[in-house]
Simulated assay, not measured.
Amino acid sequence: MLKLFSWRRSSLHTLSPDSGIPSFRLSPLSLLYISRFLSQFTSKCLSEDIYDPPFSPASNTQNPNKKTQKKKKKNKDQAQLDCKKTQEFPLKSDLPFDFRYSYSETNPSVEPIGFREPPKFSPFGPGRLDRKWTGTCAPAEQLVDLEKVVEERNKVLGEPLSDEEVAELVERYRHSDCSRQMNLGKGGVTHNMLEDIYNHWKRAEAVRIKCLGVPTLDMDNVCFHLEDKSGGKIIYRQINILLLYRGRNYDLKNRPAIPLMLWRPYAPIYPKLVKNVADGLTFEETKEMRNRGLNSPPLMKLSRNGVYVYVVHKVREAFEIEEVVRLDCSHVGANDCKKIGAKLRDLVPCVPILVKDEQLILWRGKKDPTQNSSSLMELTTPLMPS
């Protein structure tokens, strides 16, 4: 053992008092630090490179992925520069309709009474579109010949599909696990949704659209705006599931340019949905109608983001017997409850007289005696033989 650790005994050698120098003893740690310092000092002096180890920067061979990352970043930067060069602002679009945030959930005939933000702030960005933003839409400035638009759309659609072709497309895209699916929510047919449809049409002939929420009250309106704004055709409709076909002669390079909305604009202020006194009634009568509706059992209980396809039909049937109907919207939300009341007012038609605690009270209005007499005449007159 002494032979093995002889080096340690020599390093810890003490000086004799006869030499005239005071004796001291070095610890193992101090010797270790001194040896490291000397080795580093000698390596620096002898080496020609200033940045020699252990203080040299890391070489590229240690991380080979850095080169590939730099190349990817350069490619992305070049792609962005190319896109900026190709996009010349302001963008010009030849689409014949006015640009709105939502096409199916807004009524152009109803003018707002105020705005929550100045109309000068365009959601398309400053100077990015050749159309002026009015607060609700960006109207088309040039007059468009509708006949030519219809002819061009018919050319893109081509000949109508046969039953076998329709069945094949339906079987391919109608299932819930379809990768080419879009969800249509309470915003309805929005402007940016058109760009998503064209992106799906790059690699698929049809798009599966699942509709939920308030727009499902009027599915005919949703189908009309999808076909009118995108230029496609709906080949399948099952309750709230739609298939939108792009056409036989669809060309990706010649598709219309759609400028994107950079943010969602604030909704303008519209007149109140519920008046203090309903038209055709006095204050006491409206109060009595409201109390009767609150105490009556609910006709339906609506769920949040549900499918409201049959609500209009059931409300019309209920108004044939009852004068006031209550809809339970406790899980829908106050904002959606008001939207449902506004849609039912135009579709049924009826008069919303109360929206309280997410309960919607509807009054059928005063019936005209001429309508009742005409309906009775139709029932009593016998059918003529053909």
Rank of each mutant, 00 (worst) to 15 (best):
R255P: 03
Q87H: 10
L32V: 07
M377K: 09
G231R: 01
I34G: 04
I353V: 14
Q181Y: 07
L273S: 07
E358P: 00
E147P: 00
T14Q: 13
K233C: 13
E288Q: 14
S102T: 15
S104H: 03
R316K: 15
R208L: 10
T106F: 02
V110P: 01
H200N: 11
C223D: 03
L12Q: 12
G306V: 01
I209Y: 00
K92W: 13
F5K: 02
R345Y: 04
I353Y: 00
N107I: 08
L260M: 13
N107E: 15
L242W: 06
Y310R: 14
S43P: 02
N107P: 01
L327R: 02
R248Q: 13
K85W: 03
S10W: 14
R131I: 00
E195N: 09
A204V: 00
Y198R: 08
Q181T: 11
C350E: 02
S43Y: 14
L95I: 15
Y101I: 06
D82S: 11
K275P: 02
V214G: 01
D49K: 05
A140M: 10
K356M: 10
N372G: 09
K301F: 03
P96H: 07
V312A: 12
G158R: 06
K76T: 06
L294N: 07
V325S: 01
C329S: 08
G20H: 06
R174F: 08
L360Q: 04
D130H: 15
W201C: 03
K72F: 12
E159D: 14
M300K: 11
R326E: 04
D145L: 09
K272D: 15
L354H: 04
V355P: 00
G125V: 04
N75M: 08
L252I: 09
F97W: 15
K272S: 15
Y101P: 00
L38V: 11
E165K: 08
E227G: 07
S56Y: 07
E358C: 13
P57N: 09
D328V: 04
S122W: 00
P28Y: 11
L344V: 04
V277E: 10
S386D: 08
P90V: 03
V150S: 12
M1T: 12
E105A: 03
S19Y: 03
L383I: 15
G188Y: 06
I21V: 15
L129K: 00
P256S: 06
